[in-house]
Design a protein around this nucleic acid. Structure first.
Lengths: 272, 272
DNA sequence: TCTTGACCTTCACACTGTGTCAACCCGGAA
DNA sequence: TTCCGGGTTGACACAGTGTGAAGGTCAAGA
């Protein structure tokens, strides 16, 4: 017979936990003194305790551990749980690794620049969106060329939507595609719930499973700054980017580009 | 201006969390309607939200995130936090990997044997212990040889301790060393707090930083069964064992070895 | 102007595993 | 008998997030 303290010390758990396991019915003391309430454990309860500890160390919750040790599960179910756990652990592993690269990337940045960046890149999932859009050709992927194409395009788009009585249900998005002869097709799109109009195209912008995003404040002429930060983050964190960035307009000010706020979203996949 | 729902949807957090961040002072809405209490966020708060999300994704607690984004920290402190985090992540990574091998080992076992083992191996840290002991030579490391040496040794040990008025403060431990001419030195030890006697040796059994342990029920003649389970676990989980196992007596019955309960403890280190 | 449905508010409880604190009781040694 | 270490119960705390109830608001359509 062991007192709770002795049993705990030997079993690598705290007395607190043994009481908790008692309360959960996971491990009942062999004897409880009716008068004093003292718990006494027998030596052969160590094997049950060990099962519990071993399972817990595998990362199972106490509830799962309870189900397993009380053999409420067939071998088949058990295998299922283990497989599930295995998958979760592989996931954990990947996530930890990704965090580690991120932290290391930040450390390198801080060593090099003496401070941490304040424009932060965030990985997002972007759902497919139904949009109304117009598109046109720009001679190059260059702020100077694109602006003059995009602005009137949005103007026209909103005008036509207004005429058709359609209200946008989200922020305007610009996106780009390579077109013939090294030109760029520029799309001006805006999410809409429902409705259609003959003079705008309605389509679904595909989801981006993983997109690296950054918020850019100010004139699009200075978009390069943010795009470089983004590119560097992608490089440093072990991703590869894919295609052109989408530009979501979060704040627009007709008169003062310095007040503009956009989010750039670029699809990425893990390298290796 | 975004309502909390829109801001949340765009920022990849739940509205619940935005309220929580507000409560923590981590991210206050740009405007709160005095009459209705509605929170409204401005577009340029996305960059702060992104910082928060990015830092949180690195695994920092909200409190730490708060300290970091409010720039209460020098670059030096920041670097310290990142280094610490880096170390923790490396740790996480190792732990996840170890769990994964364990789970995989169990899956293999279950595939091969159709059920999960009920004798569970647990990794423990064993602290250095002050013990009183006697030792003798056994011709081999073999149940048949060791038993007859060990039993009387413990008898004598307890007798002498009793005579010296010393009370053990833990369970008896047997351990082994190679001796000359392929013989084995057998130690019969028992933890004592204090006191000494001329006719027993007092020494400190060294700690075992990592020991794989298993509970063995029954006669020591059948110790092999448990030792094999132990050896296999060590192999399957990517450890290497080191020296002989210690045998801790948890339950002793003079008359019936079937009631004996021992724990075997063997020092291990990670392979690779 | 009224209804409706989606969205907002606060408050509160839940989860998990563990530590810690308080107030009090018990067992064995001096 | 007294004292101390250790036992008992009960409660609160952490962190981050989900969920639900009870009720107020906004915007669009009838």
């Amino acid at each position: 017979m062991f007192t709770i303290g002795d049993f705990a010390a030997f079993g690598q758990v705290s007395a607190r936990m043994l009481r908790h396991y008692d309360a959960l019915g996971l491990l009942r003391p062999a004897v409880v003194d009716a008068a004093t309430g003292y718990r006494y454990y027998s030596a052969d309860q160590f094997s049950r305790l060990n099962r519990i500890v071993a399972l817990k160390d595998l990362g199972f919750s106490l509830q799962q551990v309870g189900a397993i040790v009380d053999a409420k599960l067939s071998a088949e179910e058990l295998r299922g749980m283990l497989r599930l756990r295995q998958a979760q652990l592989e996931d954990d592993l990947a996530r930890s690794a990704a965090r580690l690269t991120s932290v290391e990337a930040r450390l390198r940045l801080i060593e090099k620049e003496g401070h941490m960046p304040t424009d932060d890149v965030v990985l997002k999932h972007i759902a497919a969106t139904r949009v109304a859009e117009l598109s046109a050709i720009s001679p190059s992927y260059d702020g100077e060329d694109i602006g003059p194409v995009l602005q009137p395009l949005f103007g026209q788009l909103f005008e036509r939507l207004g005429a058709a009585g359609i209200t946008p249900c989200g922020s305007p998005v610009a996106y780009y595609e390579d077109a013939e002869h090294d030109t760029i097709r520029v799309h001006a799109a805006v999410p809409v719930d429902t409705g259609s109009a003959a003079d705008v195209e309605i389509l679904s912008m595909p989801e981006l499973a993983q997109a690296a995003t950054i918020v850019h404040k100010g004139d699009m002429m200075e978009a390069d700054r943010s795009m470089q930060t983004l590119a560097r983050w992608i490089e440093d964190n072990g991703y590869r980017s894919d295609g052109y960035a989408r530009e979501v307009t979060l704040q627009f000010d007709m008169d003062n580009p310095a007040n503009w706020i956009h989010e750039f979203q670029i699809a990425v996949t893990k390298r290796n």
